[in-house]
Each structure stands twice: as C-alpha cells, then as structure tokens.
C-alpha cells in the first residue's frame, strides 16, 4: 500500500510527464498555423514520422500508461479525501483557497472526457480507421482536423476543455513542484510564475488552433 505521500509522487511524476508531453504536442501542432498548403503536407508528414518511430512508440506507451495511472491514482486520492474531509452544515472554507485547487478531480474528469473525444476524433481514426491519403501518400490527418473543426460545437468543446486544462495545469504544476519537495521560498516563487505562464501559453495556444481553423480554413 502506497503512503499518502507516495501516491502524491505518482500523481506528480505522471502529471509532470503529461504536462511535458503537452509541450511537444503543442510544438508539433504549431504547424497547423502554417499557410494552408504547406500545413497540409507538413503536418501529415510529421504525423507519419511519429507513428513510424520506435522511440516515439515507446514514449507513446508511457504516455498511455501515465494517463491511466494519473486518472486511477487521482480517483483513489479523491475518494479517500472525500471520506476523510469534514462535512459542515455551514461551509465557508473556500475563502482560504482557489476553487480550481479544490476541484482538480472535476477538472481532471473534464479533461479525461475531452481526451476520449479527442482520441476518438483523430487517434482512433488515424490508427484504426481508413483515412484518405495525401499527395505524398501519407495518411491525411490534416483533412480530419479541418473536418472536425468546421463544426462549431467541436470548437466550443475544445476551447472549453482548454480552459479546464489551463486551471488543471496551473495547480497541477504548482502542486507537483511542492510534492517533489522544493521548499525554498525564492525558487518556489519562480516555479509558480514559470508554471502559471507555461499553463496559460500552452492552453491558449491549443485553444487557438480550432478557432484559427474554424475562421480561416474553408
């Protein structure tokens, strides 16, 4: 049985890995902002490269594992915390903390639901469906992306999910750094600033992709 602290470490390590993955994912997806023609081929080539690389394959399994562990561990922790935390008739405890720090479970669940949709939209179709091929003979993920983001409700779902992601990341990174044991007030402060900036940049960046496509690509 893991101690409460060890369970938090597991949360922290998987979470930080996922947060780092987001950066790679984000940098790759920046290609969507290229001129349409260029974006089309380059994005597909990039996707092809990723799916063929054995190293990337290993990383992707670590990624799936991280998502699963992060979710299960999070569930275990949340269930225990619900049991141990006090239940008050009149409850103003919220005044002392940020709402998103108290609701990581809910934010996480939203993100998990989003992930299911997201995987279903692209990953599943790309891997197991029969996507068309582009001019270079790569699977044409780009048209899939364009097709999905032509629908306003998908754009909305994606954007709202990025809001959830942003708050989840802000507290997650902050909390993970604490769990790792960084206690020097100066560095803690810097990491808070860096973590928050990172969360906002990544989330806004991701959110801009569907919006950009919705409004520019026809």
């Amino acid at each position: 049985m893991l101690s409460t602290l060890s369970k938090k470490i597991l949360m922290c390590l998987t979470g930080l890995f996922l947060a780092f993955f987001l950066l790679i994912h984000f940098l790759g997806n920046l290609q969507l902002f290229l001129p349409q023609e260029q974006a089309h081929l380059q994005f597909n080539a990039y996707s092809h490269f990723l799916s063929g690389n054995i190293l990337i394959k290993i990383v992707s399994y670590v990624l799936y594992l991280s998502i699963v562990l992060h979710a299960i561990d999070g569930l275990v922790i949340t269930i225990k915390n619900k049991k141990t935390g006090g239940d008050y008739q009149s409850d103003q405890r919220g005044r002392a903390s940020k709402w998103y720090s108290r609701n990581m479970g809910i934010l996480g669940t939203l993100i998990l639901i989003f992930l299911v949709i997201h995987f279903q939209n692209f990953w599943y179709v790309y891997k197991f469906g029969a996507p068309p091929l582009d001019a270079k003979g790569n699977k044409d993920l780009y048209v899939l992306v364009i097709a999905v983001f032509q629908q306003w409700w998908y754009v909305l779902i994606y954007v709202l999910s990025m809001v959830a992601l942003c708050y989840h990341l802000i507290h997650g990174i902050h909390s993970a750094v604490r769990t790792l044991g960084l206690y020097h007030p100066k560095f803690v402060h810097w990491f808070k600033v860096i973590g928050t900036t990172y969360s906002i940049v990544i989330s806004i960046g991701f959110a801009l992709m569907p919006i950009y496509i919705f409004f520019t690509v026809n």
């Binding site: 938090k8 922790i77 915390n81 935390g85 903390s97 940020k98 720090s101 990581m104 902050h174």
Partner: peptide
C-alpha cells in the same frame, strides 16, 4: 487523515 492537495487553505 487525507492527502494534501496543496490548496494551501
């Protein structure tokens, strides 16, 4: 006791 989730309350 429960887990610390760093809400800092």
């Amino acid at each position: 006791f429960g887990h610390c989730s760093n809400t800092e309350a």
